[in-house]
Design a protein around this nucleic acid. Sequence first.
DNA 1: ATAATGACGTCGG
DNA 2: TCCGACGCCATTA
Length: 109
Amino acid sequence: MRHVDPGAVHPSLTPFAELVLDLVDRIPPGRVMSYGDVAEFLGTGGPRQVGRVMATYGGGVAWWRVIQADGSAAPGLEREALERWRAEATPLRPAGDRVDMRRARWDGH
DNA sequence: ATAATGACGTCGG
DNA sequence: TCCGACGCCATTA
């Protein structure tokens, strides 16, 4: 048996939740993906399903790198997300309260 | 099996 | 730019 597989199973999670969390774990610092981007990349589910997973299990991953398509942070976590974005130099819009999706969006590669 | 839920996305006004 | 209405679909009750 191996020591610790990065993509090892998370027993209590649904297959879809594992796919989401595994992908979020690979988003590089300073880059982001919208809920819709994640669903599209996985080829299953939709933005709301990704949102459900993040709301329930997002605490263990880089949740601030998964945002809404317009560049705004997850509801209720705007302040903390902003600190994270600044800390890892995520490209922000002039106003400074949202991510510049055109430059920060990660395509999965 | 059926219905309700929800960290969304898109479009019209 | 901001807001409301509607569609979406895995999960959960």
